[in-house]
Design a binder for these strands. Structure first.
Lengths: 348, 348
DNA sequence: TGTTGTGGGGAAATCGTTATCCGACGTTCC
DNA sequence: GGAACGTCGGATAACGATTTCCCCACAACA
């Protein structure tokens, strides 16, 4: 008893035979790119419907040299920032009638290279990449950009001739630091991510630039974009000798900050009373820790929409000069720096 | 000045011409499916390397009727449970040498139908779907399963002849309820998701079955799988007349529970002192709220791995009988039900 | 009446592979 | 020495669409 799966779907030719015309005609009716007699057209439509005809996109792609598919390469799907970005990218691409081929480079430049190669072999019309590393992703991206339109998303790589849409990390970091300064904080620990991802580098550099000029005391600790790193290092901040203890912990992203806040609660340190904490990204989680995280919001949707738009433009006009768009993030103040009135008036 | 993008990649034919042999031979060397003389083989390898030959997967797919691509259709990428599942699916598929075409059905059966159709038109070798709705996804899935191998993931749809890998939601719910009962709780509010997604239905039903027999008082509130719903409803639980007030809030997933815990903190209600809260899924967030969420862990990785395995098996043997695998979740007890000793001895 | 468009239609090339068929050559075994 | 066989290689159909080229009929025009 067959379940009908092996009954292969109808082809253009079968529709043509059913109608009694040529495949060219059927194709024209369905594509609508050249006029066809009204009667014949109707019969073709009908036959296509009856046979449940679905155009084979693979064949179409082979002939027309366009798969209507773009590859998205992300460095760590685990980091909640990326799924939300991904969702917006998927939405924007779907509106363009393109599909999304997803690849995770797991923060590994070698894996990233492999994935990019695979996607190109699959003839994607373009690539949207959040590169793993400023340096070690360069070769991969340069090679990729020579074969297919590439848009860098969220993180950039200098010297690669490709469009890029990023967020102004330095401006975001300054927003946070000015906010803290206005609240009277002057002793900072910065919990940053090591490595050469552009977001990590820019946030780090922006912190240092500012701290050198305005901080009473500061110190930089490097780890990765993880909750665990935040937990661990926050513990060390509290037990450090008094001279090195901070009154604010500035984290390179929300995951680190969430870890820090949580550990501080466990240690009975009041946030923000004794120690303020800030994050970066404004992932969903940021409003759910307690206290909520003061952070900087990345304009997620705009980022994705702009990337999709740039990619479409470049696909349409491959030789145009590369553009770089930098969006501005906004400050979101919550309980980790400011004592907020809750709706019912209880503070904590 | 061209950037070389329009210089199309080398084809099999060009490699053949460079070597001075036929395309068939080149194909054979590269595929390794039939012996070729060692000398010729070496020259082909060399030429392929020199020309930077990359096999065109689209052409290959057209001819060999296999794209080595599977579609993953998720109901809401926003829910953090799904990205983590997605990540594991991506990993498992990659190990099989398959790529992942991602689609978000945004909890809308109509959109889901559209996406599935699109993926099938793209000739995916199979589909992994977490259906939106037990009832309204049926037609879509039945039609899809007739054309291409389908595996249902995390949520199932009865009467659809397809493989499925799900988690035993009823068992998970019972774990939580027994846990609460052992702690002395007897008055429950259940914050569940409306709609006919199988996970929602099963958790709801399991709660009721148990509550009817063991609860002193219980009540079911229906909303969606969102933080907002948890916040809102937790507020109502606290202000309800004493006779209807719970001593434990059982939530259908972690997002709802996180919202509930957060609102309760704002209201100054001690958790778990006055009111215990439980979640479901054990997403990353669950350990970061304070207190951490007692919840049930879905065996994410096994779920994904099993789905990938089932799909591969079915692709290889399309006519085999449909299988349904149900994995068992495990209880994770945290501060939202149990007062835990933190490492440093401070409680709460 | 002859010429020239023009709209509607078919035949066939094409995209870049894989798969099938067939021939040539060398070996082995009666 | 001839038949049978295994190995290596080439030529050439597919795969299922799009697209180019060409043809025919019919109308319009001089």
């Amino acid at each position: 008893m067959s379940n009908g799966r092996d009954a292969r779907p109808a082809t253009l030719r079968e529709v043509a035979e059913a109608v009694g015309c040529s495949v060219a005609t059927v194709s024209r009716v369905l594509a609508g790119d050249r006029p066809v007699g009204p009667d014949l057209a109707r019969r073709v439509q009908q036959a296509a419907r009856d046979l449940g005809y679905l155009p084979n996109q693979v064949a179409r792609a082979l002939r027309s040299r366009s798969t209507a598919t773009v590859g998205l390469v992300l460095p760590q799907i685990t980091n909640p920032f990326f799924p939300s970005l991904m969702r917006e990218v998927e939405r924007a691409l779907h509106e363009q009638g393109r599909a999304l081929l997803l690849a995770d480079s797991a923060d590994d430049p070698a894996l990233e290279a492999e994935r990019v190669e695979l996607l190109i072999a699959r003839q994607v019309d373009g690539l949207i990449v959040a590169p793993v590393d400023q340096e070690r992703s360069m070769a991969t991206l340069a090679k990729a950009a020579a074969r297919v339109p590439v848009v860098l998303l969220d993180r950039s790589v200098d010297e690669v001739q490709a469009d890029a849409v990023t967020v102004d990390n330095a401006a975001g970091m300054r927003l946070l630091l000015e906010h803290l300064k206005a609240l009277g904080h002057s002793r900072f620990w910065f919990l940053g991510a090591a490595g050469d991802a552009s977001a990590a580098v820019e946030r780090r550099a922006a912190f240092q630039d500012w701290a050198v000029r305005h901080a009473g005391f500061w110190r930089v600790e490097l780890g990765d974009f993880s909750v665990r790193f935040g937990q661990h290092t926050a513990g060390r901040a509290v037990t450090a000798p008094a001279a090195q203890r901070p009154d604010a912990i500035v984290c390179a992203n929300d995951l680190i900050a969430a870890g820090a806040v949580q550990r501080l609660r466990e240690l009975g340190v009041s946030v923000p009373g004794e120690l303020a904490v800030t994050g970066f990204d404004d992932i969903d989680l940021a409003s759910l820790t307690s206290p909520g995280l003061t952070t900087v919001r990345q304009p997620n949707r705009e980022l994705a929409a702009e990337a999709a738009r740039m990619l479409a433009a470049r696909i349409h006009q491959p030789e145009a000069a590369a553009r770089a768009v930098r969006l501005t993030p906004t400050l979101v103040a919550r309980g980790s720096t400011v004592v907020v009135q809750s709706p019912q008036g209880s503070t904590l």
